[in-house]
Design a protein around this nucleic acid. Structure first.
Length: 302
DNA sequence: AAACGCAGCAACCGCCTCCCA
DNA sequence: ATGGGAGGCGGTTGCTGCGTT
């Protein structure tokens, strides 16, 4: 039993939009705002499906669209984000102001795919096409006493680093609160700068690495009754696999920080929090963090 | 000049998720 | 708890314009 169609197809236009239809849609949205797509066509006097109106507006008519050729910086950013997120075009688009998911998807399929193939990189996996023995994603866990301090305790690091040469990178930090374990999990996300890597050597250019997701996990502030707790990295990661972790934004204590703020998109599209430190990040939806819940599995590489 | 092939992109389709009654 | 409506998303299609033969 299929779902009912979103509109009466026999009474709707299809195909390319006319100038008049565009004008009607723009006029209606300017005076009534976005939303209620199902009822919009009738209200705007359009013989179109509501979905079609939404798509036309979002992909073509929105005033904040950038349009025009993608810059080299945008290319590299798309590649980085795709290596991390896969075909999550809407998430990728969210990091490129003025670009739409459809535009990025088309651009990927027509330009970037070919570009990567020419570089000898599999666009699906972001690994060298011919080399199966290098650049594999490695997952390692280490416990660092060097990071220990009376306040933050030892740190467990789960590294998803690819085996690429050392490269200039930027590190972002994210604290996530696991309420069940009553501990904070600290995420260190290294984002190697491909443009800088290009200046190193052609070989390293070929290996322009993926986003390096390095997760560091550490008990936050050892509470008095926790100070003698010993938690091996393996047991900790096992627990990670079995718990949905609450983001810091859901917990007001502990000085946790919103992922959006941490990535420098505070109060941007992905971040609705009002303070970077009081951790009110409800609604943040990047990397599956919607509603303040991080499903650990959502961080798996495709 | 015409035919053909290909690339680019706008638009469609169907499935999924979220929200609300 | 559940079912349906609405919006969102990703894959795919098909039209158009350009280059080549």
């Amino acid at each position: 039993m299929g779902r009912s169609p979103c509109c009466e197809k026999s009474h709707t236009n299809k195909g390319a939009w006319t100038k008049e239809e565009d004008d009607r849609l723009i006029t209606h949205i300017k005076s009534h705002g976005e939303g209620c797509w199902r009822s919009l066509p009738k209200a705007a006097g359009l013989l179109r499906c509501g979905k079609s109106c939404r798509l036309r507006w979002i992909n073509y008519l929105r005033p904040d669209l950038k349009r025009g050729n993608f810059t080299e910086d945008e290319d590299e950013l798309i590649i980085k984000l795709h290596s991390l997120l896969g075909n999550k075009w809407s998430l990728i688009a969210g990091r490129l102001p003025g670009r739409t998911d459809n535009e990025i998807k088309n651009y990927w399929n027509t330009h970037i795919r070919r570009k990567l193939i020419n570089r000898g990189i599999d666009p699906a996996t972001h690994r060298p096409i011919t080399d199966h023995h290098t650049n594999n994603i490695t997952t390692t866990t280490t416990t660092s006493a060097a990071n220990s301090s009376p306040e933050i305790g030892p740190t467990t690091t789960i590294s998803f680093a690819s085996t690429t040469p050392t490269a200039p990178s930027t590190t972002h930090h994210l604290m996530i609160k696991n309420e069940e374990l009553d501990q904070d999990i600290k995420f260190h996300i290294n984002t190697p700068d491909c443009r800088k890597i290009k200046n190193i050597s052609p070989e390293n250019q070929e290996r322009c690495p993926d986003l390096n997701l390095e997760l560091r996990i550490g008990p936050p502030h050892l509470h008095h009754n926790q100070s003698d707790m010993v938690l091996s990295s393996s047991s900790y990661t096992q627990q990670l696999h079995h718990h949905k972790l609450m983001t810091g934004g859901m917990n007001s204590g502990g000085g946790t920080i919103c992922f959006g703020c941490s990535l420098g998109v505070k109060n941007g599209k992905e971040c609705s929090c009002t303070s970077s430190l009081n951790g009110n990040s409800n609604g943040y939806d990047f990397l599956g963090l919607k509603n303040g819940v991080l499903d650990y599995r959502s961080l798996e590489m495709k």
